Amino acid sequence: MKTLPNTITLNLDDDAEVSVKGFIAPIEYTQYNFHVDWDTLANLRVAERKKQYSTSIFCDFLPKEAVSVGTPWEIEHAGPLELLKQFHPNPSLGMGWDLHHHKTESQGLWACLRAYDAEFADIVFRIHAQFALNGGWFTPAQFTGHLVINRVKRSVAFFQMYVPNGTINFDAWRKTDPDAKGHITDSGFCPQIELRTGIENILRNTQFVESITQEEVEHKLALCFYKSQHINWVSLEEALEMGPAQQKPIHAISINGPLLDESC
């Protein structure tokens, strides 16, 4: 007899308020010096350093029905969009033809239950968004983070939404000539783009009764965005061994940017 996975419902009382702090550090690097030559990017700072939200904003991160650990679901747009405005007043969740003039598969907002016990549940999420700046666009690689719910109090115990660090973690484009059809692009690194509230120690100090690793949940979320992540990628050394053994040709692909995010 097949055993069904344990499922739990996730709820919040939407009449409480949550105070969220916002951070955008100065940009440290861009390949073509956009952060020096473009004043808008050079002066990019968080719109509101601290803001009060109704807990109902975070309800949009929750699934509509009971879920098990490792099960992804789509996030409603309204709550995350309101939170993104704390970074900058002009966020967009659209990542397609109308913005960069090219089609992309990376649309969406997804979350996944990573772990839970009787008191807490840890939800990991991934959001792709960008911001309309004066004269161009700013596109972080991704927004990820945790929403930890106190299941007993039905409250937000910890929330963090941030752009992960990397060699580059954002893409930007601008129109230097308003009459020209095209635009110029750049990519770079910003050390902190983050919203936060609550106590992060909860994640380290809680002995969850059921969980998957952070790496596992990140992979599950990446699968929701990119078809390329459904490919069983192997190293060149492994491919050289596997090809002759399986009598299959070896396909070598050269790329000039990451396949896992929107930083290029």
Rank of each mutant, 00 (worst) to 15 (best):
Y162Q: 07
R151T: 10
G145E: 03
N150S: 13
G136L: 06
F158I: 02
K153V: 04
G145Q: 10
N134E: 09
L133E: 02
T144N: 06
R151F: 09
T139S: 11
M161Y: 02
A157M: 11
I149P: 12
R154V: 00
A129W: 08
T139N: 12
R126G: 05
F158K: 12
T139G: 03
L147N: 01
V148R: 13
A132C: 09
G136H: 05
A129E: 12
V148I: 15
R126V: 01
L147M: 09
F138P: 12
N134I: 04
H146E: 08
F158N: 02
R151C: 09
P164Y: 12
M161N: 06
V156L: 04
T139A: 07
R154M: 09
R126C: 05
I127V: 14
F143W: 04
R154H: 13
S155E: 14
R151D: 06
I149C: 12
V152R: 13
N150H: 07
N150I: 09
M161L: 10
F143L: 06
G136V: 01
N134L: 09
R126E: 04
W137G: 02
Q142G: 03
L147H: 01
R154F: 00
R151N: 07
F158A: 00
A132F: 13
G136F: 02
T144L: 04
P140L: 11
T139R: 15
F143R: 05
R151H: 09
N134R: 07
F131T: 02
V152K: 15
Q142E: 08
N134P: 01
S155F: 03
H128Y: 05
Q130R: 15
L147G: 00
H146P: 08
H128P: 06
V156M: 07
R151M: 05
T139E: 12
F158E: 00
G145H: 11
S155Y: 03
N150E: 01
N150G: 03
L147C: 04
T144Y: 01
Q160R: 15
G136Q: 04
P140I: 02
A129H: 10
A141P: 10
